[in-house]
Structures are given as structure tokens and as C-alpha cells.
């Protein structure tokens, strides 16, 4: 009975992002086919599936990153708090302000640690030095990086280790105070210790943010997510509470994948 407690919160949580019948094309190649998925507010939704199944393509559709790729086209509806992300009035800059993103490889700017964290607030017009300092500290604390870098904020971000760089990228994303954070295999380029730090961090982020994470590691999905969606060949095969997906999958393909029969 205790087991059902988190699931109840899952059921009562609000819908943060709702994707309905989403198709993504690269030129004539269809990478995502009729994908529908609801991502709950202040919960972690994990997208799993074998390489090339379209999970990264799907997550990049949520904050309109495909706008930057020549030849990419997104069809269908994606609602953020009920507003169409691809609607005629939607501004991609505003959308990306509300939906932050962390990439597969740490990609800090070749600037100081401080300048990396305050980049977002700065380009949105925050000039007050003490405000920026405050934002930087809050963001770095949320990313569990503050203690490691507080004495070397003016050093280059490129001098940090890979794991620290990735947490810096998370800090940089949360500095904008987004509502949703998308993570595209954020730990795939990191060693196990750095990975476990990132995973702990993701658990804490749901106090403030909705998290959507792409991962090829089923263990990771099982450890950190509330909801799991299984992608295969551009389709969402099955969606459900993580515990259910991993213990009682309804679809044969899901079961084959999580038991390691392919992928």
C-alpha cells in the first residue's frame, strides 16, 4: 500500500507538456511517427529506447530546437500549460526561456564560470551586479556545484572536469528559472561518480521544475523517473508510471527491450 503513494501524486499532478500526434521529419525521412505523450508537472519523465529510436528528436521538438536545423519539420500539437508551442503567436525565444535544456555533451561557453551561469539572465536584460551574483549562487547551489567553484568563479569553465561542466550547464539552465528542464542523455559522457551526482541532482530538481530526460540506460530511468515512455523506431510503444513499465509492461516490445532481448 505504501507503494501506491507516489503513484497517487502522479495521478493528481497537472499536465505540464502535452504532445499530441507529433510527427518530425528530416527532409523526407520521418523520425517521429504520431507520438503522443503527457509530461506531468514537477515530475521526471524518462524517454528510453534503443539508439536511433527518435527519443532525442522528440525532446528537441518540445523547445523548438528543430527550428535551427535546416530541413527539419515538426507536425502535430505540443501544448505547454495548454498553449501551443508551435502556434502562430508562440515565440521560440519565450518558449526556450520557459523550457530549458541540457545537452548530451557538456557544452559550457569558453567563458568564466560566472559568465556561464549568468549568461541567460544577462541576455534577458539583467544588469544589476548584485542580482546576477545572487542568481549565480542560487543556480550553482541548485546544481550542487557551488561549494566546488565558489572560490574560482573567474576561472575558465573549460578548466572544470566533465562532470562539473555538466552540472555547470544545469546551473546555467536553472539560472533562467525555467518551468521545464529537458535533458538529452546528460550523463552519457560522464564517469559513474559524476553520473550518480547528476542523478541525485535530478531528483532534487523536481522540487521546482518539470524534468524530461532522454536516457539509453534503463537503470537510470528506473532510478530517477516517475514516468517512462518507451520509444522504438520513431513511435512511442508504451507509456506509464516507471514502476509499472519495468515490472508489468503491457507491450511485448517493451518487455523484450527491458529484459535485454534487443536494443
Amino acid at each position: 500500500m505504501i507503494d501506491t503513494a507516489p503513484q497517487q501524486t502522479l495521478e493528481t499532478a497537472l499536465d505540464k507538456i502535452v504532445a499530441k500526434d507529433v510527427n518530425v521529419f528530416y527532409g523526407t525521412f520521418q523520425a517521429i511517427k504520431h507520438a503522443s505523450l503527457t509530461m506531468k508537472d514537477q515530475h521526471v519523465t524518462a524517454l528510453i529506447g534503443p539508439s536511433g529510436c527518435g527519443k532525442s528528436t522528440f525532446i528537441r521538438a518540445l523547445n523548438r530546437m528543430h527550428d535551427l536545423t535546416p530541413g527539419a519539420r515538426v507536425e502535430g500539437t505540443i501544448l505547454l500549460d495548454g498553449e501551443d508551442v508551435y502556434g502562430p503567436d508562440a515565440d521560440p525565444v519565450v518558449i526556450r526561456h520557459r523550457i530549458g535544456m541540457v545537452f548530451q555533451r557538456p557544452n559550457p561557453f569558453p567563458k568564466t564560470i560566472y559568465e556561464n551561469v549568468v549568461y541567460g539572465p544577462r541576455i534577458h536584460g539583467e544588469r544589476d551586479k548584485s542580482k546576477l551574483d545572487e542568481i549565480a549562487e542560487r543556480a550553482l547551489r541548485q546544481a550542487a556545484l557551488w561549494d566546488e567553484v565558489k572560490d574560482r568563479m573567474q576561472r575558465s569553465a573549460l578548466d572544470l572536469s566533465g562532470g562539473q561542466q555538466q552540472r555547470l550547464c544545469i546551473a546555467r539552465a536553472v539560472a533562467l528559472n525555467p518551468e521545464v528542464i529537458l535533458m538529452d542523455e546528460p550523463a552519457s559522457a560522464l564517469d559513474p561518480i559524476a553520473t550518480s551526482k547528476i542523478e541525485d541532482l535530478i531528483g532534487q530538481l523536481t522540487d521546482h521544475y518539470t524534468v524530461v530526460i532522454v536516457t539509453h540506460s534503463m537503470q537510470q530511468a528506473a532510478r530517477i523517473s516517475d514516468f517512462t515512455a518507451f520509444f522504438h523506431l520513431g513511435e512511442i510503444v508504451e507509456v506509464g508510471p516507471t514502476s509499472q513499465i519495468f515490472t508489468h509492461p503491457k507491450e511485448k516490445r517493451t518487455e523484450d527491450y527491458i529484459t535485454g532481448r534487443f536494443g
Partner: peptide, 20 residues
Amino acid sequence: TLREASMALAGTKWQTITRV
């Protein structure tokens, strides 16, 4: 990846070019 990072932080194209 740096351009993507800037755009994902809600930077405009111009801000991305001039600042990154």
C-alpha cells in the same frame, strides 16, 4: 554545440553571434 547552448538559453540569433 555552443550555438545550440545559447539558443537553448533563449538567446536570439544576434545575441548568440555577438556574445558567443
